[in-house]
């Protein structure tokens, strides 16, 4: 039984211009305990929608088809049938401003484990120390904390409910780089220690390389490539992945000239015919313009490209 198995997931949003497809036929799985799967893509690629769907937090204008199984149980449309915790970018919006950190954290133990108040607060202190915050933080309010401290509180809250799956959607994007490094290492170590599978959503492929075990590259609502981070870095298959890796400036070496992916990502209400990347793809040929490629397996890796069929 896999911790997470998503198959043929299609998610559409109803907008003033009609239905737009945010996610198109996405299938992926997390196979092991404590495995971290990164979703990497540009804005509009559908990575956050996938996270929301897995957390059961899709907005009311969304319509979903397919299946999301957490430990074998179907959760799509039944958000309370499994324990999925989510960590978002904006920690201040995720915390209640009028309750202390201790009260918010203890509430989880009172509800989920039926502990009494005193015991719950005690346990909250233990969980805070796991993320490197002292007991003094129990009595503090969210506004008294720095951004990195708030994000660590969210991590401890996510772990507190002993979840079957954690969704971390750009958890450090709003933080300074030194704080970002700290928060990510805390998150990664705790998730590995507790053996909880995690989906890590980011636009920063370099961070994904160090936080995750495997990487899913998304483009225009579809998975274009999924494999281990080493394969993605050392031998990217899809032309988009190749281009993406060549287009980011590197901190550890000088880059003579950045590679430019011409054009802009397609708008979800007007996807091109055939492969969605073909107008920007240097390797596109006739078939790419007329037929949408399917996800195919290449040596245990997944790629959506006619070059590998």
């Amino acid at each position: 039984m896999k911790p997470l198995e998503i198959s043929n997931l299609v998610i559409k949003y109803k907008t003033l211009r009609g239905w737009i497809t945010a996610l198109d036929n996405v299938s992926l799985s997390i196979d092991g305990k404590g495995e971290i799967l990164a979703l990497v893509g540009e804005s509009g690629s559908g990575k956050s929608t996938l996270g929301l769907a897995a957390a059961g937090l899709l907005p009311s204008n969304a319509r979903a088809e397919g299946s999301i199984k957490v430990n074998g149980r179907e959760t799509l449309g039944k958000p309370y049938s499994s324990k999925v915790a989510a960590i978002f970018q904006d920690a201040l919006a995720s915390l209640n401003p009028v309750l202390t950190i201790g009260e918010q954290l203890a509430e989880i133990f009172i509800i989920h484990e039926k502990l009494d108040r005193v015991r719950a607060i005690e346990k909250a202190g233990v969980f805070l120390s796991e993320v490197g915050l002292s007991k003094e933080f129990l009595d503090k309010y969210p506004h008294e904390l720095s951004g990195g401290q708030r994000q660590r509180v969210l991590i401890s809250m996510a772990l507190a409910m002993d979840p079957e799956l954690i969704i971390a959607d750009e958890p450090t994007t709003a933080l300074d780089v030194t704080v970002q490094a700290k928060v990510l290492l805390v998150l990664k170590n705790l998730v590995k220690k507790a053996g909880i599978p995690m989906i890590y959503i980011t636009h920063d492929i370099a961070l994904a390389m160090h936080v995750a075990d495997s990487i899913t590259i998304m483009y225009a609502g579809q998975i274009v490539e999924l494999s281990s981070k080493y394969d993605v870095f050392e031998n990217p298959l899809h032309p988009y992945t190749k281009a993406l890796l060549k287009s980011i400036p590197k901190v550890d070496s000088d880059v003579e000239e950045l590679y430019v992916i011409e054009g802009d990502p397609p708008s979800p209400d007007n996807f091109p015919k055939g492969c969605r990347f073909h107008p920007r793809c240097p390797a596109a040929f006739d078939k790419c313009r007329s037929k949408m490629p399917e996800v195919t397996g290449v040596n245990g890796r997944l790629v959506r490209c006619h070059l590998y069929e």
Binding site: V177, T178, Q180, A181, I205, A206, L207, M209, H210, K229, Y230, F233, L245, I248, K250, V251, D252
Partner: peptide, 9 residues
């Protein structure tokens, strides 16, 4: 040191 190098190794 806070910036990760892109190479996962």
């Amino acid at each position: 040191s806070a910036y990760p190098p892109p190479n996962p190794r």
